[in-house]
Simulated assay, not measured.
Amino acid sequence: MPAAVGRVLDQVLADRVDRARTLNPLFADDVAERVARFSQGGHRTRSQLLWWALRACGGNDRASVVAGLRVGAALELLQTCALVHDDVMDDSALRRGRSALHADVCAQYAGAAAPARLEPFGKASAILAGDLALAWADDLMAETTLEPEVARRVRPMWSDMRTEMVAGQYLDIHGQAMASHSLPHALSTACLKSARYSVERPLALGAALARTDETTMRALRSAGHCVGMAFQLRDDLNDIFGDSRQTGKPVGGDIREGKPTYLIALARARAEASGDRHTLAILEHSLGRSDLSEADLDKVRDVLVATGARAMAEARIGRLVAQGLHHLDSALLDPEGGRRLRHVLNSAAPGGACHDHRRPDAAVPVAPLASAAEGACR
């Protein structure tokens, strides 16, 4: 399936780059080609979720299959926009194990432009590249043939998803600027920035393309919300306890940028409740410091373990995944499509413990998965 979406992307991107070249060769080489190269990477998680939701809901006819691949490709272009802009806002030099787009532009023109102008030029180029990816994603959606009834459901979902993505990103940078580390803010950010955009909306789009009923749609959206929250919590853990060789980006970026993550909010809340001034001082000293040393980052890791925040986050991931799969199992789905969808959801945010890159054999025990009867995701 990822290869099939890749072939659609190849065709669309080749056409768009050719059209860009007729406008201006420099623009095509520096911006359009970079968007095309970036969009051809990644795990295709969102398009896989859309595809298997489509198939699980019985979307097997040619029109549904073609639309599913095209909308899946549009999702990948939207993800390009999100990641390229995210790297600019976070001033991150790495993405997917390679130079971030803005850093790549700077490297190309190093020595050709004054140093004081080079970094702003690289970041401005990346912003334009992200805008171009978003425009191409919308073009692809607009050019996809949909039956009127399907279009009435799909197009508002696409519009809402784009707005939710921007809202989540704004909450993220607002939390950084205002040093807001409350649990409600962290959860709201995770919901909008990741849960809906990364999992819930792709599932809903696939189900809508398959013309599914509202009962099944509600079950899939509930499953997507739970697993999407787990997806973001896993990402938070991997950012500080993971290995950059596996994540493709520098470890500790969330701490150095002062991100309002659930993991940090939880550690702070537990330290405040117990009157642990030492822990609060470490967090206060570390969050938002771009020059934070590896030794100081280790102190933050120790705090996250000592407060129980890491173990609680791991346990919550387990509960969320279990509840999400329970919602999925409640829907009447095609057996094979449902099985594949279950596998992709389970892989999106693994419930097992996150291994500490400093100690490869160490893992935090995870509390037993909560019973699906717990009800709503917590």
Rank of each mutant, 00 (worst) to 15 (best):
Q108S: 07
L233E: 11
P360M: 13
R7D: 14
A230M: 07
A322C: 09
S125Y: 05
D254N: 04
K123S: 09
A370V: 12
V88R: 10
S125R: 04
L77H: 00
H43M: 14
Q11K: 13
C226N: 14
T80C: 10
M89D: 00
R319V: 08
R16F: 01
V71T: 03
P335C: 09
I255Q: 06
T215H: 04
E149W: 03
R162A: 11
R268V: 02
A179D: 01
A186M: 00
D18R: 14
M217H: 06
D276A: 15
Y109F: 08
A93H: 02
S125A: 15
S92K: 07
P250G: 11
G275L: 04
V344T: 08
R234W: 02
A63Q: 12
L23D: 13
K299V: 05
G41E: 15
T261P: 10
C81K: 02
G41Q: 15
S244V: 11
A36T: 09
L118P: 05
A295W: 02
R211G: 14
L75T: 01
A177C: 07
G41W: 12
S274H: 08
W52I: 11
R359H: 12
W158D: 06
D10L: 09
I317H: 12
A376D: 13
A56I: 08
A370L: 12
A281L: 14
G224D: 02
V303G: 00
A372V: 07
R358V: 15
L78A: 14
A126H: 10
W51G: 06
L183K: 02
V227T: 11
R256K: 15
R201K: 11
P350N: 12
Q323C: 09
R98I: 01
H102N: 02
A271Q: 03
A137W: 01
F38I: 06
A306G: 08
Y262C: 02
R201D: 12
R96H: 08
T145G: 01
A315E: 10
L333D: 05
P25F: 01
V227I: 13
P25I: 00
K259C: 05
D296I: 00
A116G: 05
I317Y: 12
R256W: 10
A367H: 12
P365K: 14
A322I: 03
A315F: 03
D131L: 08
A129F: 09
R44M: 05
G206Y: 10
P250D: 10
M157H: 09
L304H: 14
A313F: 02
A372W: 06
T215E: 10
A103T: 04
K193C: 13
V71F: 09
S39A: 10
L332S: 11
L332E: 11
E143K: 09
D296G: 04
A3I: 06
A53N: 08
I240L: 15
M141R: 00
Y197Q: 03
W158H: 08
A370G: 15
P120F: 10
P2Q: 14
H343N: 03
V88P: 05
L101K: 07
L78K: 07
P202E: 12
R7K: 11
G224T: 00
Q108V: 05
V65I: 13
V8G: 03
A28R: 14
C81V: 01
